[in-house]
Simulated scan of single mutants.
Amino acid sequence: MITQPQVTPTPDPDEERRRIQTERLLAYRDDGPLVAVLKGRLGRGLPPVPAVLAALLAIIALAVTGSLKDGPILIVPALVLVALVVPSAPRDHLGRLDWLTPPLLRAAEFLTIILLGLAAGTPKWLLFVLLYVIGYHTYDTVYRTRQSIWPPAWIFKAGLGWEVRLLILGVGAAADQLTLVASILTAYLLVLFSVESVVSWVRLDKASAQANADQDLEQSPEDAAEQVTGDAEHG
Results as ranks from 00 to 15, higher is better:
A225F: 00
Q219Y: 00
V199W: 02
I20N: 05
F193S: 09
I73P: 01
D12W: 02
G172P: 08
Y139L: 07
L57C: 11
E196Q: 14
W99E: 14
V199A: 03
E226V: 00
R146I: 01
D98R: 04
Y188A: 06
K206A: 05
S200C: 04
P152S: 13
R41Q: 13
R24L: 15
V164L: 09
V86R: 04
L105I: 12
L130H: 07
A83K: 12
L53T: 12
D98M: 12
T141N: 03
V199Q: 04
A173D: 12
A173Y: 03
P123N: 14
R91Q: 15
A36I: 03
I73R: 02
I168Q: 05
L116V: 07
W201Y: 10
N212C: 11
V49N: 10
A175G: 15
S88K: 04
R44I: 02
A51V: 09
E23C: 07
T65Q: 10
P123G: 12
P13E: 09
T8R: 09
K157C: 15
D140Q: 14
P50I: 06
L126C: 14
Q6M: 12
V195Y: 11
Q227F: 00
L81S: 05
P102A: 11
D98F: 05
R41Y: 14
I149M: 15
A175D: 01
R144C: 09
V198N: 03
R18H: 04
R24V: 04
I20R: 06
V181N: 10
D231F: 00
L169N: 10
G40Q: 13
Q6K: 10
P77Q: 06
S88R: 08
M1W: 02
P77W: 12
G32A: 06
P47H: 10
K206C: 05
P103M: 12
G66T: 12
L94P: 02
S220F: 00
D31T: 12
P151T: 03
D231P: 00
A63D: 03
Y28V: 03
I20K: 11
V228I: 08
W125M: 13
A225G: 02
T65K: 09
L56Y: 14
S194G: 00
T8D: 13
G172S: 11
T3K: 14
P77H: 10
T229E: 00
S194V: 13
G235H: 05
V171N: 02
L111D: 05
V195R: 12
V49S: 11
I113W: 13
D223V: 00
G121L: 01
T112E: 04
T229G: 00
I155V: 12
V191C: 03
L180H: 02
E109Y: 03
A173C: 15
I155D: 05
A36Y: 08
T186G: 15
A207K: 07
T22E: 08
V129S: 13
F128K: 15
A224M: 07
T122F: 01
D231N: 00
L160D: 06
V64H: 11
L57W: 03
G40S: 13
D176M: 04
H137C: 04
S220A: 05
L127E: 07
W201R: 11
G170K: 04
D216A: 12
P87H: 04
H137F: 08
A78Q: 09
T101E: 14
Y132C: 07
K39C: 10
